[in-house]
Design a protein around this nucleic acid. Structure first.
Lengths: 114, 114
DNA sequence: TATTTGAGTAAGCAAACGCTTACGCATTAT
DNA sequence: ATAATGCGTAAGCGTTTGCTTACTCAAATA
């Protein structure tokens, strides 16, 4: 049901967008309040937020003419799942890769070329 | 010594680069062997690999005229650390065990004082 | 009612991206 | 010595990104 049209990896690639997420993870804010925290213009922030909405990282609650932006972290799960198998291997340098490899082989079936 | 000039978030934003990492995480491969797994041209893969090298995700071992690309996962730590604080909150949202998790969370944070 | 405020969006633009082909240059093979 | 191989990189090109200013409109305020 999570309709994530836009790639979340690409959404969080921009440092400003990550900061927006950091910001509203603490509390929902309306657009102008968010924009006040950055040096770029309000429309620029509006466009960033649009992207974050499109990939499901932000949910907007309308209140009169204000739009409160609330963070929705579930899409980050895709990123976490991609990193997860690798995590142990960089945390424990001399760990054997058996576990990792087993998991990767499952993932890699989606890696075939057309 | 991890010189990470290039932003790792931006490096993994490209799906082809993520696939390259998936691929050589299993075993180091030379450039042509990597390129065989993709439909884009060899130079395109070469450019992707250059980016991955620049952000420290790939290490190259020269062997004659071949360059074996080996994955280096440490830079992913930056991504994992950014996601980590959010992880619990989206996992909580999916369960009805908020209270229990909150307690477990406290126990965990008392373990690592980082 | 008239004005201010919050916010979406269009248009335009420079820079970055991702890809291609073409070339160059070692290293290996014949 | 000559040819083939592995690979890096330059040049060019269309697309995408991130930003700006300018406009619009609805909601709140005077």
């Amino acid at each position: 049901m999570t309709s994530t049209r836009r790639d979340v990896f690409q959404a969080i690639a921009d440092p400003t967008r990550r900061q927006i997420i950091n910001l509203i993870a603490q509390q929902p804010l309306n657009l102008n309040a968010i924009a006040d925290n950055f040096e770029v213009s309000r429309p620029a922030i509006s466009q960033h937020i649009k992207i974050l909405i499109e990939c499901g990282l932000i949910d907007v609650k309308k209140n009169g003419r204000e739009r409160y932006c609330e963070v929705r972290l579930e899409p980050l799960n895709e990123v976490a799942q991609w990193i997860e198998p690798y995590r142990k291997s960089w945390e424990e340098r001399f760990t054997k890769m058996d576990d990792l490899l087993a998991r990767l082989q499952k993932e890699n079936t989606s890696n075939d070329k057309k």
